[in-house]
Design a protein around this nucleic acid. Structure first.
Lengths: 245, 245
DNA sequence: TAGTGGTCTAGACCACGGG
DNA sequence: CCGTGGTCTAGACCACTAC
């Protein structure tokens, strides 16, 4: 009996085969951890490790205290295409929705002052929204607007595209942006919104936007479920083109 | 006694404070898990969970069976700047080195055929290299070259920049590229090279390059340690400019 | 209220790294 | 060789979800 592979690996590999062969549909629920541990005759910790490995592969995902589910295809997200979320999603034949979680007017934090190059005591508007892909929360976005450039915007409908609102109400065009993409741990409020356990890994995208006068008008913290997105960048083709695939 | 926070969170937060206050230097080793579990009077599993949370935050990192260490700053990687690794690193005042792990000539796998739009039975060259940042392995790169475009390249020095080799020996310029960025689990050989435990999360960047005649000449699988890199994209400024900060 | 995953214990042995 | 993290057990209680 060759026992080079650990039990965790064996269970992981068996589960993976079952997922592929069994033709489970995205979103379908897996048996509970306790059931799997009986089924494979191992402890629950070992099952958890195997499930975590499959999660890292992007084959399944976990919702806090709800269970494990078969993964959905990743959304292909091209930040340079400047397409707003709902259009991006519908072009990929998926369903999008947005929920505004919080709207506030507050003083910029030191961290934000650094990113947005603000003076002390600058007032900013803060908009927190959760975006859903096929009814599943996959993205928490926090927008920080320099209040100086957006008088009265908080009275508007903020569940629509902010970029469009900037253009139609204030005449701002996005001239250039900067994106920083990096994996990080989900802060508590992000974990809650995305149904993750606290400290789980997410993909964080910090975006800073400049208008046609090269003024830094707003920035955006995006927290994506790491298994829900693939960031695509084309080194040509970053105009207003609608090609994403 | 308010006990809302779990022990794991308490230990995590205490450790984090210690790391910040104690002024530990990047690369410095933390006490062993067993020592920490005695120090905090909890089981080793709880310590592991706390350490994993700090790892997800990017504050510490783990090397398989070597221990836990204080994290280094992330390398800022701008794929659109077309700067090769060694220059990128030295401009950020860090130290770079490259080790060629494997060079082979083989038939394209089905997956590769799909990505590179190859016909069946196409011969490709495969170059596997490990790149080091301050003597720490942070990136495993696998290049797949369409052998048709690169006769005799395997005899060359492959530890240098391939892009430069393409230009000087074959006259190929990079006209455009496509990047797909997504977190995924490290395959076994990647985990080994990067000193990770198998199944750990890495940041995978698939890059496809076209030459001046718009021919798909090669593609590249990059596996980054997730805590070692920040991918930066500027929506203007993607020429040959040397600005990265 | 029943079922789920989240957290936690107090041990144990194994495989690998490095002197 | 010893020290390290990797893996694993067989339980336990808690917090939250969903009904």
């Amino acid at each position: 009996m060759q026992d080079n592979a650990s039990r965790m690996r064996m269970i992981r590999d068996q589960l993976r085969e079952q997922l592929f062969q069994g033709g489970l549909q995205p979103g379908e629920k897996l048996p509970a951890e306790r059931q799997l541990s009986e089924l494979f005759n191992v402890s629950r910790m070992t099952v958890k490790d195997a499930l975590a490995a499959l999660e890292a592969e992007g084959l399944i995902f976990c919702e806090d205290r709800r269970g494990w589910f078969v993964a959905y295809p990743r959304l292909i997200y091209n930040p340079l295409s400047r397409m707003h979320f709902h259009r991006l999603v519908s072009e990929q034949k998926r369903k999008a929705s947005t929920q505004v979680l919080k709207v506030a007017s507050e003083l910029a934090s030191p961290e934000l002052m650094a990113v947005m190059a603000l003076r002390e005591l600058t007032q900013i508007y803060r908009v927190q929204r959760c975006r859903y892909l096929d009814s599943r929360p996959v993205l928490l976005v926090e927008n920080y607007l320099n209040s100086h450039y957006f008088p009265g915007i908080l009275d508007d409908d903020l569940s629509q595209s902010l970029t469009e609102l900037y253009a139609t109400r204030y005449g701002y065009q996005n001239r250039r942006s900067r994106f920083d993409v990096q994996p990080c741990a989900a802060p508590e409020h992000v974990a809650r919104a995305l149904h993750l356990a606290s400290g789980q890994m997410v993909l964080k995208i910090i975006r800073v936007n400049y208008n046609q006068a090269d003024q830094l008008i707003d920035c955006e913290w995006e927290y994506w479920r790491h298994d829900a997105v693939c960031v695509r960048i084309d080194s040509l083709d970053h105009g207003m083109s609608s090609r994403t695939l």
